[in-house]
Design a protein around this nucleic acid. Structure first.
Lengths: 139, 139
DNA sequence: GTACAATGATACAATTAGTACAATATAAGG
DNA sequence: CCTTATATTGTACTAATTGTATCATTGTAC
């Protein structure tokens, strides 16, 4: 599902900034299923050329989508749609999803020979580090 | 114990560079015992072909592992897991391996929109369930 | 005119790919 | 055996492709 064409329609008279139009239309295409999780988006330069705009404008749109966790931009590699579960998924599904993810993690850890104690300690430490990093960001 | 197949799983949109993924997974397999001291790794070109990446990307990963004294790369000969899991390397590796695994897990969970609270609760529950299952086994 | 948002230009950094090379091993010829 | 040619392996350097950061320019509202 890589190598998306991504046909966007910009409207100069809409009053909306170009980057906003890009953001909106990518979101729309994701909701409509035209774009799917895992899809690779065009490079900022490729899309910019197609839309006849500066690539920084596309980069700005991508950055907004990245901050919204909708896409994942990776310097030197490309830009991908993330795999966020749709907001309408039930709490039950959410729970099952996390449960499955956690089981895969624990399975792997135990397969590697780590003890319950080591694993739970590492999770605690990592969560703590994560929280501190996020606190710094929001300052 | 030479001629290892070395099955690695790359994820294009994990956010981690390919060379980092290679490093992490080789470290894990060493900690796990899938790879043992003295084992010969695939050549940079062979592994690159299997992973469908440029051989310089593999070479970069090998160089990082070499600098960490985990493997020994020898021009014209090949690449081998270091014989003596040197002084402090072994325990350090174990720790780093678990740390990397945990970070991948947390990253994925947060990317899926779960909160710290949900994650830590799920880990606790799962560990508890695991322990009880093991207790039953040993009765 | 001033202020501010939008866009463009330029330089940069990270990752991966391409090309040529050096060291070692292996096999062939003598 | 020893020498030499060839293949195999990792290395070094460079280029190409990607997103990022910073500042300049433009255009519009007040």
């Amino acid at each position: 599902m890589t190598e998306k064409k991504l046909t966007l329609q910009l409207d100069s008279h809409s009053g909306l900034p170009i980057y906003t139009q890009i953001v909106n239309q990518i979101q729309s295409q994701l909701v409509n299923g035209i774009l799917k999780p895992g899809d690779q988006l065009p490079t900022v330069r490729a899309l910019a050329q197609e839309l006849r705009v500066n690539f920084n404008t596309v980069a700005r749109a991508y950055r907004m989508l990245d901050e919204a966790r909708i896409i994942s931009t990776q310097q030197g590699r490309g830009t991908y749609i993330t795999e966020i579960p749709p907001p309408e998924v039930s709490e039950k599904l959410r729970h099952e999803s996390l449960s499955a993810l956690t089981h895969r993690f624990l399975n792997e850890a135990f397969r590697l020979g780590f003890s319950e104690r080591e694993v739970s300690q590492m999770v605690r430490d990592s969560l703590k580090a994560w929280k501190e990093a996020n606190d710094e960001d929001s300052e």
